[in-house]
Design a protein around this nucleic acid. Structure first.
Lengths: 243, 243
DNA sequence: CGGGTGGTTGACTAAACTCAAATGATGTGG
DNA sequence: CCACATCATTTGAGTTTAGTCAACCACCCG
């Protein structure tokens, strides 16, 4: 006679987690079924409208989240209102700053976003118990640092037209994680408005718009409804991105 | 009768490590005496001349280092020669990129530098065994990410004069870790040439020079021998840095 | 003393910004 | 379904900031 279940109290992972991308490529992959069950007791999923602020600058942080879908923008502001987007988070990124009481950045939903949110205390405790969780976090943080430094080159040394090309290329590569990275073409919806793109690239809205129309009239991209973009030759776009 | 030593084979830490800053504020603080002894068997100290390349872009990484003194600049280049400094490392920062076979950045001694260098394999093994080591590394990486993002605001949204002021302020705060962070004035040697500063700020040498002379003629800073800078009022400098 | 390196200064240019207006998309109430 | 309001985006004209090119200065070292 066969047993359906090996172990009644640890073999099952929570229903919510079963098909969750964060369990495969995200930090939850570090947790065993028992830990997932414990965590899922205090976690909750949310749908967030675009434009909603998730974390405010200088606000106390009392929760972390996984991004399950959509795009979150991380911004920093100057006192006179100038803004800079310092990072974008896609699924299944972990959102939050461990080891700090208050945030130094703003996080805002750029598109509709769904999150899986946990109490900070629970994750902080699990980090102490599970080196594998810290390990995953270290890996993601190192990747974010690589990305941030890559972007510093774009901000500091590229021309407006190279910046816009770099941005489109970055989005094309991140927006659809299932897409073939060696694909020659891509089509996607921009997760950001022109104002956001300007804040990401350190440019004005007008300059972004002009460079976009230039790419369009040069036949590098096609644009529908302002947001939907098709790139027929990613190689051609890349050649315009500096790199 | 009393014993001088509790445990003959673990109580002693290597002579080299005894007064080493990396053991207090750096990653070596995560290691117990046994691990320090093991590590010190394969580690070595070096004095490096300014301008010497420590890690090349796209080169295989086979060692890590602690910065014991001096300043290391991390740079990324574009194919046509444009360069951007994406980070500066001061004592007792850990230098190296875990979990990657080859480096995506260059590291070069900006000043005379002394390093304590370890084989990559040894540290990689210790990271697996010692969660505390990964923990320290995670903390440093998160701090570097905060710094990088702070700098993205400077690169993307500040004017040339704010950039130079921000740079001087950052150096004043980092160059002498023993200095009182609430001090009102500071004096230091710039660890970078004008060309380096330009590559850090996304400006040209000429613009950096002009902004420096402007700060000098406005009485915000005093300069001797091109490199030695005195700031009488850090508050006054900060007001010119955007923030 | 001559040449090299690093830094400053000046005159001119070009890239991106500002201000302003037109166009296009979206949504609402009549 | 249309007229209208609103918001995002584009386009144009003129201005500003930082870049370019070139000359010059100071210092160091052989």
């Amino acid at each position: 006679m066969m047993t359906v279940r090996q172990d009644v109290h640890s073999a099952d992972i929570p229903v919510l987690c079963q098909s969750c991308e964060a369990r495969h490529r995200g930090v939850c992959g570090a947790l065993d079924p028992d830990q997932l069950v414990a965590l899922s007791k205090t976690s909750s999923r949310h749908k967030i409208e675009p434009g909603i602020e998730l974390i405010g600058d200088a606000e106390a942080i009392d929760s972390y989240s996984n991004v399950l879908s959509g795009v979150v923008k991380l911004t920093k502001g100057l006192s006179d209102g100038r803004q800079q987007i310092v990072g974008l988070q896609f699924a299944p990124d972990f959102l939050g700053r461990p080891f700090k009481v208050e945030s130094a950045i703003n996080a805002e939903a750029a598109t509709a976003v769904s999150l899986c949110t946990f109490p900070k205390a629970t994750i902080d405790r699990m980090m102490k118990e599970s080196p594998e969780l810290e390990h995953r976090l270290l890996k993601q943080t190192l990747n974010e640092l690589d990305d941030a430094r890559e972007w510093m080159v774009t901000l500091g040394r590229k021309t407006a037209s190279e910046k816009v090309a770099s941005f489109l290329l970055m989005i094309a590569r991140n927006i659809d994680p299932t897409a073939d990275p060696t694909a020659k073409s891509a089509t996607f919806d921009l997760p950001l408005t022109r104002a956001d793109i300007a804040d990401f690239l350190g440019l004005t809205i007008e300059t972004v718009s002009r460079q976009m129309t230039r790419l369009r009239t040069d036949g590098v991209i096609r644009i529908e409804n302002n947001r939907h973009v098709t790139v027929d030759s990613l190689g051609r776009l890349e050649r315009r991105s500096g790199a």
